[in-house]
Structures are given as structure tokens and as C-alpha cells.
Design a protein around this nucleic acid. Structure first.
Lengths: 173, 173, 173, 173
DNA sequence: AATGAATGAGCGTTCATTCAT
DNA sequence: CATGAATGAACGCTCATTCAT
């Protein structure tokens, strides 16, 4: 991947995430990336291809998260890690997550596949911890963490620490 | 308000919510509403005015929710109502809430004002219930319910009942 | 002619003259005149009909000028009057003359008919004053006065008095 | 500048001059120039940018006139040149001058800056020729020549030669 | 690999005009 | 006589995309 291609991907991610996919023109991406508009189409085919490439670049983040959880066999520690990693999303990644979360609301873009695997992993975790209704517990924590990410990305709340320790207490971590 | 105006508002709500505001053309709204495109501008000034009119029509929903909570003085019942009303969003209102939630991610549209009032109400509730950290508790439940709405609107999960009773147990309602 | 019709004509004149015919919408005329847009079309048929009505209302000004000159049989006095009336266009009439002069430049609107009669009258005048080339003299004064009106309407120069007396001297009036 | 750009400029000049700026659509310019409408905006930004480009192309004409007068130091010859160059506007330039003169009447376009410099030059000229009121004389000749251009562009009179020699006699040239 | 001229479809918006009331 | 809802065509402009170089 050439430098120009990387420029394009970086600026596309930034603009898609902050201005929205539909509201970002390929011309603007090209201008900000310092390349000609034609180059975007030579490399990525069309605008949607550019979006796909942007997302593909971030898929490794998702995979890394899932793998790191999968390799933690102690259920208590796994649960702790699920919770803590949400609170500790690195701020350099905000722009990527913003895009992921914003795209969810676009009918034709929503893809549920990732969350099913995560759900299974969490059900397993709560089973190992002998919770009464592991499936509902898994659903609860997913819903909760989803809302938490939304809050972090949109409202940037300040009391995250207290919220984090509250959750630790609640799950006796 | 004439019938055509109502048609426009209804179709605009639907399309803005499902396809996104930016990705919905006024031409499409007009076509689906069975009116000329010019009529949209005559009645609502411009596309943004149409969005405002759509939102204004739903503001009463938001106000009604807040008021019904404010008038419930028993803290336990108030908390119960906050939780239950989230699970019981009428499905006719889905499209409206989808729009509200989708708009949050649109840079220039995000308005936090509503949530501050709700937060204050919840802090007060948890204080009355003698929770250890009422502010964090309020934040937690808001984040949780926000994630819940997202799940309901996007993933339409089937185990909502079990999730609801789990929450009741957790808050001893 | 009802009061509303007069309102329409007055505002149309003002707007056509100051903003231009093409750049003035019938909606704006209606709004400023405090009537519904439909009324303009009921009374004047279409936008061009409105323009015609506006111009017709001012034709009497042109006729009055021509008549007053025609009835002055003393050639020296007639010439004097031609010159002086140009310098003394009442400022309430500026807006009308602006419209006339602006319309000249619109291909489909230019109508030369008035100036031919005036030319004939001036040729006759210079003949009576035994000028060497009465036709060229008539042309000269017409061109001059035309430029003068343009200057008055567009540049609003301050030294008009000195220009007026210079012309009087030059024609020995 | 590509051939298409030149096509656009040429047709825009023609249409703006003959139909008027407001009454000429960018679609019509594009159609007549044999290019897509989008190209106009790519090259000139917007309709006003197109007008500016059209005018800029002709500004050299204005500058050339002023410079040639400035470099003529003999006042009698300078005056003669002012007069004669007006009579001898090349007919290929008519369309450009038509645009300049038509734009004067467009409220927001009128720019007096050029005429002030010319006025100063003429005042100086009449001073050198010991005329009684050089300022009024300058004003007079400007007004006269302005009317003359108007006549040439709009009425295309046939007796221009006799008018020209009449003026020569009057100024003793 | 990279540019930038060029396109055509679509955008949000304005407009003159019609018509039921 | 007068309104104002409604229309459809056109407007200025932006867009994703193509292609010769």
C-alpha cells in the first residue's frame, strides 16, 4: 500500500466518521488527502469500496479484541477485561468507533454478525460463573457496554472512573 | 395542517429514520408522499425545516415521558417506570426513535440538553433510595437504557422479557 | 383600479427598477404589496403583463414631455426646455426612468419608436435655428441627454448646475 | 485554458450581453457552448465566477484605452483621440461593451471606479486647453460619449460620420 | 501510479402559473 | 375580488464516476 493510499484511507475514515458517509464527498477526501479525485476510484473502485477499505482496516481491532477475550479462560478475569477494555478505548480509536457506531443506523450497512460471537462468549462466561440466567446476563452486559461506548463517543462524560468501579462492585470483580 | 402536509411529514419521518437524513432526497420524500417537490419548500421552507417539523411533531413524546416520571414521587416506582417504559416503547414509535438515535451521530445535530434533566431526576431517585454513589448509578442506568433502546431498534432481540426481569431483580423492584 | 392593484403596480415598478425584471419574483412583488400572489395573475395575466401595466402607467410621462415640447413653438425656448427638463427630472420619477433605461438593454424589450418622433422634433428645431447640420445636431443633443440621464440615475453627480449652465452657454440660451 | 473553457467564455459573453445576466441560465450557456453544465462550475466555481471571468477577459480593453490616452501628452490630440476612439469601437467588441453597459443597471454590479480616473484625465486635458470650466467640460464629454456608446450599441445610427465631424468642429479639432 | 478535464444524473430550491374555495 | 394550496419546470450547483494523457 503506497503512502497516497494510506493518506486516502486515513482522511476518509476521519471525514466519514465526523461528517457522515453520505455527507462526505469523494472530492473532499481527495483534497484533504492531497491526491487527485481519480486516484480514489483507481484504487478503491467506487465510494462504497473506499468505505469498505476503511472498515477492513479496522476489522483487525475487532478481531484483536475478540481474540484477547477468547484466550482468557478465567471467567472472572474475562468479564473484567470486557468491562475494562470498554472504558479504556484509546482516544486515537474514537474516530474509527464513531464511524462503526454511526453506520449501524444506516439500514443498508448494519451487520450484526460480530455481536453473535461475542454474545456466545459472554453466555459461556456467565455460565462458568454460575449466574442464574447467563443468556440474559450476557445480553445485559452487551447492551450496557454498547450504551457506554455511545456515551463515551458522544457525551464524553467525566465520571467514568466512578462508573467503572461501580460496575466492578456490581459484578464483584 | 392539510392532508398533504401530514403525508409529507409521515414519509419524511420514515425515510429520514431508515435511510438517514443526508441520504434522503426531498424528491424522494415528495414522490412517496404523492406531492410535488415544491410543496415541501412552500410548507417547510427547506429540507432542514422539514426535519425540524418532523422532530417537533415528536417532541411531545419526549415531554410526556419526562413529565410522567417527574410526577411519580415514590423513588422505587419511579425507577421501575424508567426501566419498564424503555422495554415497552410502542412499536409505532420505533421509526421516530430511530430518527432521534440516528441523528445523534450527525455532528451538527447532537443536542444533549434533554439528558441532563433526566440525569438530575435519576440522581435524586437514587439518593432517595440511599444508593452509595447516586450520580454513578444514574449514569449507569442511563447508559444501560440507551444501549437497550439501541438494541431494541436495531437488533430487535427476543429475550427482552428475561432481560427486563433480570433488571427488576438487580434493582430489587 | 382598486387600491390593491395600485399597490401591486407601485411595488412592481420599484422592484423591477431596483432589482431588475428577471431578478424580481412575482412572490416578492406580492409580499411587498401585501397581496396574495394569485391576485397578480388575476389582474395582469402573467408577469410580462405586469411589466406592461407598469410601463403603461408611465407612458403618460413620456407623452406629457413630448406634448409640452410640441406646443412650444419658439425654437430657442423649445431647445432650452429639452435641456432643462432633463436636468430637472423629479426624483420621484427616478425609479420609473431607471426601469425604462435598464429595459433598453434587454434584447426583447427595446423599443425605439419614441425616439424617432423626438428626433424629428429636434431636427425641426435646429432647422428653425439655422444650424448647419440640423440632423447631426439633433442626434448630438439626444445622445448627450441620454448620457446625462444615465449619469443622473447611476452616478448622481453633484456638479449638475455647472454642467447645465455650460450647456446653456454652448447653445447660447 | 482549454478549448472548452474558451467556448464557455465566448458563449457566456454573448448570452449575458444580449439576454442579460439574470435571464441567462448556466444550462443555456453550457448547451450553446457544447459542454456539460457541470464543467462551468468546475472551471469557474459558480455563475458569478463565470461572469467575472468574462469581464476579466475584457479588462485589458479598458486598460489599453486608458493607457493610450495617458500617453498622449498633446491635449488637443488627446481630446481628439477620446472622441474618435468612441466612434470607432470595433464591431467585434460590441458584445463586450453591451455587457459592460447592461451590467451598469444591475444594482449590485455597478462599479464607478474606472470613470473617476478618466474624469481626472479629461479635467487635466481641458485645463491644458484653457477651457473656462474644465471640470464641467470633462463631465460633459463623458456624458456625451457615454450616450454615444449607448446609441451605437442599441440604435446603430447611420449618420455617425456627420456626428463625428460635428463634434470635431465644436471642439475645434 | 497519478492526474485533471469532462460528464450526466441528481440535489435542494425558486419560480411563474393554476385553480378550488 | 381575493386567497393560498398546489404544481412542474427550470434554476444554480454538487456529486460520483470515467477516461485520455
Amino acid at each position: 500500500m503506497t503512502e497516497k493510499q494510506e493518506n486516502i484511507l486515513a482522511k476518509a475514515l476521519e471525514l466519514f466518521a465526523t461528517k457522515g458517509y453520505a455527507a462526505t464527498s469523494t472530492a473532499k477526501v481527495a483534497r484533504e488527502a492531497g491526491v487527485s479525485e481519480g486516484l480514489i476510484f483507481r484504487h478503491f473502485g467506487n465510494k462504497e469500496g473506499l468505505l469498505s477499505a476503511v472498515l477492513a482496516q479496522g476489522q483487525e481491532k475487532l478481531a484483536a479484541i475478540y481474540n484477547s477475550l477468547e484466550q482468557e479462560f478465567n471467567p472472572r478475569k474475562r468479564l473484567e477485561r470486557v468491562i475494562d477494555m470498554t472504558f479504556e478505548v484509546p482516544s486515537e480509536e474514537y474516530v474509527f468507533w464513531r464511524l462503526i457506531y454511526a453506520l449501524k443506523w444506516q439500514t443498508d450497512a448494519y451487520d450484526d454478525s460480530g455481536s453473535a460471537a461475542m454474545k456466545a462468549l459472554l453466555v459461556e462466561t456467565f455460565e462458568a460463573m454460575h449466574y442464574e440466567d447467563p443468556s440474559a446476563e450476557a445480553e445485559l452486559i452487551m447492551v450496557l457496554l454498547d450504551g457506554l461506548v455511545t456515551a463515551i463517543l458522544l457525551r464524553k462524560p467525566k465520571e467514568l472512573n466512578r462508573l467503572q468501579s461501580l460496575l466492578h462492585r456490581r459484578y464483584m470483580l
